Amino acid sequence: MLAQYVYSAKTGLFRIVQHGRRWRSLCGEQEVGRHETLEAAIAALRGNHPQARLPEDIESWRHLPALALLHSRPANEPVMRWQVAV
């Protein structure tokens, strides 16, 4: 994963993720599609989720560069969950 753009709306978290030369558009964990351009990914999300009122311009989305993603927890590492004391 190289970089991603994130937009939080009332209907969910929307992401556009760059993989090589292609872009994936996602709503939550569900993939909406794969696209050749960033603009096509935005158009697909806006078309499939008009109620979310996603912005057309990418400047309104939050950009997470590739270096910021290096600090994330690896996918194969277990998630630590705290138990609630009763």
Rank of each mutant, 00 (worst) to 15 (best):
A44N: 01
H19F: 00
L54W: 06
L54C: 06
E29N: 07
R46P: 10
R53L: 12
E36I: 13
R53T: 05
R21V: 15
F14I: 11
L70S: 07
S72K: 03
L45P: 03
L26Y: 05
P65Q: 02
E39R: 08
C27G: 00
E31C: 08
A40R: 11
R24F: 01
H19W: 08
H49K: 00
R34T: 14
F14T: 13
I42D: 06
G20A: 11
L26R: 10
R15D: 14
G28Q: 04
Q30W: 04
L67E: 11
L64M: 11
R21Q: 14
A68P: 00
I42S: 07
G33A: 05
L67H: 11
S60C: 04
E56I: 02
E59T: 14
L70T: 09
G28W: 04
L70Y: 12
H49D: 06
I16A: 01
H35N: 10
V32T: 15
Q30F: 00
E59C: 14
S72L: 13
S60I: 00
A52N: 09
R34G: 09
P50D: 09
L26T: 08
S25Q: 05
V17W: 00
R62Y: 02
P50I: 13
S72R: 11
H19I: 13
C27Y: 08
G33Q: 04
L13V: 10
L67T: 00
S25A: 15
L26E: 10
I58W: 01
N48I: 00
H71S: 08
W23D: 05
V17H: 08
P65M: 05
G20E: 10
H63E: 09
R21W: 10
A41R: 04
A41Q: 10
R24C: 01
R21P: 07
V32S: 12
A66N: 04
N48F: 08
R62G: 04
I16S: 09
T37C: 07
E36L: 15
A40G: 14
E31I: 11
A43M: 14
L67F: 03
H63V: 01
W23P: 10
P65W: 03
G28C: 06
F14C: 01
L70V: 09
L26M: 13
Q18E: 12
E31G: 03
H19Y: 05
E29C: 06
G33M: 03
R34M: 13
W61F: 05
E29R: 13
G47E: 01
C27F: 06
I42N: 02
E59V: 14
H49W: 07
V32A: 15
A44T: 02
L26F: 06
L64I: 15
R73Y: 02
V17Q: 12
A66L: 03
E39N: 03
G47V: 09
P65K: 09
E39I: 03
I58M: 02
A41D: 12
T37N: 02
R21S: 15
R46K: 15
L70A: 14
